[in-house]
Design a protein around this nucleic acid. Structure first.
Lengths: 334, 334
DNA sequence: CTGTTAGCGCATTCAC
DNA sequence: GTGAATGCGCTAACAG
């Protein structure tokens, strides 16, 4: 285990002071070309590599790391976010530190702590719980926090979300335009902000279309595909079965498709899913799509901007969605 | 922007020396209970948070960070890896630093540099290129490197891969057992180690089965779904069209399915895909499956083990695969 | 059980 | 253009 050369060693080898070596390696001006080259030569021949840990400590304040606390890295939505975040950070010479909360508020809290110990310059969070008192204190202490996917209740921070209401409205209108009236909404946990937004807009759109009591076809609890399937099976067996289903997220879509595959006449039921997925094209599933990578990129952008200017106004970025027709959403009721 | 209290401040508030405060906060023994409590009280009331940057520097050597260089974080395979890695690292008090190489060897090199500056204790890499000269030097200098998914040519490091040959053999045998002889293999870029393993075993298995000239049905270049589709379309139009297709990765599987959907009689062709995917179940696609999260976990485990014992023998972990029959692989030739 | 003395590797004054 | 001195916040020997 060889010891890495330090700046001091490089400086000595080049016959200059530590500070001059530091200037060269940080590309600072006011160094004679000859000196610069001597230092550079010494550095490469010694295999010097700067120590970012020491540099960050010396500089004081924050490190050049940004933390990302996500619900579940293995979920394709969150990994798309991470990908966009990482790409944008890199442009600014920042590195990404990721951590999974497993959607557990308590874990989210302890992860926040660990990342803060690392003195991250900013924290990008997909809030799991409702209580962010810990974070609030940190923000007061100067921490940059950006929230993605869902707003953090009661916190005045930069936020990036998609246009949940617009997407839902467009999906419902799409189905209405194809002649459907009995449209079901299959959503996940009622306490999620995205559920609330989407379900509320669903009801509003139905009401605007003159369909009374749309609550009949409103279901929640589809936190996974199996639960969604059960909900759809039950809907189909009810007195007034829906002729179309709006699945409120990608897991709900999978469950819906499973239920329809198994049901007699299931292939007659129209389906629109929220969230695009790779095989939707192959399966011919109409979806409400948006760009998750861009979402991450924008979040990172906001984090960088606020770190540079703590006094800028808090921003709320709402990304557009669009309906992508692929067949399943264009079936007409019989 | 408030200044965080340091250990020294906490110590003073508690009326003890810096070192004693350090002992308490690091849960070291040999501190009187009364003292311990005084320090803890001071720490919490001051809102103290240890500075991991300073701690790592003082400890010297490496930081408590582990780097992961992946091909593309947005790809579900890599994000599953990342998820497994992160989970295992957390158990050991380590944090994960992720970076995407975009499968570009040059980028892989510069990312390696950046992570090393951060003094990561270990590097987990999905090697993009063939040249790892930079890494080799670092390993000599004491860096722990673990390689996942594909071995790094000419480097004697801990490695985690799946049983590509066994999986391929099982898939071919599965198709043979269902009566197929004209089996096609649709693989991605020929320079990829996984391609070489899988294609070689495909040919060997065919030969063992007494099918001559299986090269007729061997294709490469399916780096994305569109390319795979073209390859399959061409295969089906040839004089001796295959009655079954073994798609060598998840993108190839998608392309194959697209081609079969569009071809007349395509629904007669059997399909087995390498790599499982969420909707394979719904689509009834038989696949060669394995556990990518576990793969990441094992890699992290190896990284931790080697960091603790630099002299342990280099390990090669080969994870099992299994054929999951779902219908598409059980069709018999007509 | 507790405190003192030195650094870790670098950046940052301020001189020269 | 260049350098000497000082400190970032903490850990690590040693002493007491």
């Amino acid at each position: 285990m060889i010891r890495r050369p330090t700046l001091a060693v490089v400086a000595e080898a080049a016959g200059v002071s530590l500070k001059t070596a530091s200037r060269v390696l940080n590309r600072e001006p006011n160094v004679a070309d000859a000196t610069r080259e001597r230092v550079l030569d010494a550095a490469t021949s010694l295999g010097f590599r700067r120590n970012a840990v020491a540099a960050d400590l010396a500089r004081g304040g924050f490190s050049r790391l940004v933390g990302f606390i996500t619900g579940d890295l293995a979920n394709e939505f969150y990994s798309a976010l991470a990908s966009g975040i990482e790409r944008e950070l890199r442009e600014h010479g920042l590195q990404l530190l990721t951590a999974s909360s497993d959607e557990d508020p308590e874990r989210e809290g302890s992860l926040t702590g660990e990342l803060l110990e690392r003195r991250v310059g900013a924290l990008i969070v997909t809030p799991a719980g409702a209580d962010h008192s810990a974070l609030r204190g940190e923000i007061a202490a100067g921490l940059t926090v950006v929230v993605v996917d869902r707003p953090a209740a009661g916190m005045d921070v930069d936020t990036v979300v998609i246009d949940n209401r617009g997407g839902t409205r467009a999906a419902v209108d799409h189905l209405l335009a194809h002649g459907h009236r009995r449209i079901a909404f299959v959503g996940d946990a009622p306490h999620l902000w995205t559920y609330q937004e989407r379900s509320a807009e669903f009801l509003a759109a139905m009401q605007d279309a003159g369909v009374p009591d749309a609550e009949r076809w409103l279901r929640s609890g589809a936190h996974d595909a199996a639960a969604a399937r059960d909900l759809v099976v039950e809907l189909l067996a009810a007195p007034e079965p829906p002729t179309a289903v709006l699945a409120a997220n990608n897991r709900a879509t999978v469950g819906t498709l499973q239920a329809l595959r198994d049901a007699s006449g299931g292939d007659q039921v129209a389906v629109v899913g929220f969230d695009d997925f790779e095989l939707a094209d192959l399966l011919g599933i109409t979806v409400v799509a948006y760009d998750a990578v861009e979402m991450g990129r924008r979040a990172a952008e906001l984090a960088v901007a606020r770190s540079a200017d703590r006094d800028r106004p808090v921003e709320l970025v709402v990304l557009p969605t669009r309906v992508v027709p692929r067949g399943s959403g264009e079936r007409r009721p019989r």
